[in-house]
Amino acid sequence: MSSATLIDETAPATTRSAGAVPARSRMRLPAWLGLTPFAAYVLAFLAVPCLLALSSGFFDADGAVTLENLTVLGEPAVRSAFLASFAVSGVTAVVGAVVGAAVCWGLTALRPDGPVRSVIDSVSSVLAQFGGVMLAFAFITTIGIQGLFTRLLLDTFGIDIFAGGVWLYQVPGLLLPYIYFQVPLMVITFMPAVAGLKPQWSEAVATLGGTWWNHLVSVVVPVLAPSFLGCLLLLFANAFSSYATAAALISQGAQIVPLQIRAALVSETVLGRANVAGALALGMVVVMAVLMVLYSALQRRTERWQR
């Protein structure tokens, strides 16, 4: 595939230099040639995989075009996986956004360039973006069967959090670990908007005789609303697409969409299930695309207040 592009991109260059053979000695390489290594790399490892992932759902095992794989999206197991994914993403996005927004408000009490702020920023980045498997471990040691918190509750108060069955390795068990990385992501993405609130606005409200409640309702909420909703969508997309934490916690079954893709990839060889992963991937990308279009629309409204 990448060799095909090389031919495409060098084609105009060869024709041009062929026409200007006498002048060749003083001709320099055109500057845009410098863009080709990056272009070729992105084509081979981003564009091609994306196209393959999205198109493979339309082919059967023999390479013939078919729509049969897409019917998998209507299967009860897949439908309930999508519903579970939506539920987990929705709940953790709302909780993460509310708690994260509160933390942002708290952060305005700290000096923006102080040491505490830089520690909080770094911790937020680590937890929001690089935790994955390790966050699953963190929650197994906290609220697992032998977890610190589980034993503490049982020994001290006689409360058994798993009295109704061990839910940590099921879909409900995803909620706490997901919130644990959603709140830091909210802090990272929502903080610029909160920091953009100008003290002059609250002074203006005060000068006009308004209370802090007036300031909140008629300045803070309207200014922050688009950004808040945008971040909410981003959090939803983040939870919807995350795989590592769920894969480390849930080793049996495929209760959410990313785990359905895992199951489909692992059983790719099973007869009649080829390219089902492609159909599932297509379903996921459609959801992500809708979320991202809405997000960028909201982001444009947000930037109005951040100049």
């Binding site: 995989p49 795989y243 990839l265 991937a281």
Partner: peptide, 18 residues
Amino acid sequence: IVPITVPAIVLVVGLAPV
């Protein structure tokens, strides 16, 4: 920015043949 929109779990479906 595209890799943010395309989840790793989706990318891996296309990366396997690559």
